[in-house]
């Protein structure tokens, strides 16, 4: 009788992995007995305390909202630019240099520029999130469109597909799995952008809390923020992954779970 008949083994394996990590953390913290490493149980209690505070909940929601708005902008612009680059040689020549620069330049370098433009405001944080996420989405979308199977393009051409039909019914559809890879990478970078942006301005969101805990040498507080950020990242990563599985179900046919 197989275990898989009763529970989803993939979910079970993930849960066991997380429990083992928590256990290792707890043991190492007790053995090390260092002020910089609180026990896992302490962190869980502290996260609970923080989530019980209205001001923290409000800032956490504010941070998530900023991240989602910045990410949505990055998806819209990144997809548009990436698709243009994937389908037009001229657009590729025009945009590639900027996308490459933004991909490889450390965002911390460009972040101060946004602060000088938008001041210490949420607009600066949105700009940082956008600049973290958009280039990777654009770059991946470009490659996704450029690597669509030539055979299916020929097949559609042989039936007289118009340019619009080719784009909508064939190229975009075929490129979607790789576009989702970009969206997946993008959501991770958006979370990073949210934290970095808020840490630098240190007046809004959970970045403000993190800066406060840092100044107070509150290691449990810092670890709690880190755990919450990881949770936010995991939840949104899972959301994108779920959307990918729904939209691109065909790409997972026959694949092992």
């Amino acid at each position: 009788m197989a275990l898989g008949e009763f529970v989803r083994t993939d979910v079970l394996a993930t849960v066991i992995g997380l429990l083992v990590a928590a256990l290792v953390w707890q043991v190492v913290a007790i053995v090390a007995d260092a002020t910089w490493l609180p026990t896992f149980a302490t962190i869980v209690r502290r996260v609970g305390d923080l989530l019980g505070r209205t001001d923290f909940r409000s800032q956490l929601l504010h941070s998530i909202a900023s991240m989602l708005i910045g990410y949505a902008l990055a998806v819209a612009v990144g997809l548009a630019v990436g698709m243009a680059m994937g389908m037009s040689r001229l657009a590729r020549y025009a945009f590639s240099i900027y996308v490459d620069i933004l991909l490889f330049i450390p965002p911390v370098v460009v972040t101060p520029i946004f602060f000088s433009i938008f001041g210490l405001s949420n607009s600066s944080v949105l700009a940082v999130i956008f600049i973290f996420a958009a280039p990777v989405i654009a770059s991946t979308s470009k490659v996704a469109l450029m690597t669509v199977d030539r055979d299916i393009i020929d097949a559609a051409s042989s039936f007289g597909a118009t340019r619009w039909q080719m784009t909508r019914l064939v190229v975009f559809r075929a490129a979607l799995p790789m576009i989702f890879t970009g969206l997946h990478l993008g959501i991770g970078r958006a979370v990073k952008g949210m934290i970095i942006g808020q840490l630098i301005i240190a007046v809004v969101g959970i970045g403000a809390f993190e800066a406060r805990f840092e100044q107070a040498f509150d290691s449990a507080g810092l670890w709690s923020i880190a755990v919450l950020v990881v949770l936010v990242a995991v939840v949104f990563s899972w959301c994108v992954h779920f959307a990918d599985r729904v939209v691109n179900a065909w790409a997972y046919v026959g694949q092992r779970q």
Binding site: D151, D154, A155, S158, R173, W250, A251
Partner: peptide
Amino acid sequence: RAVVFQHAALLPWA
């Protein structure tokens, strides 16, 4: 005219 391709060239999502 209609073409039958070497590798079928089907739409994998359809």
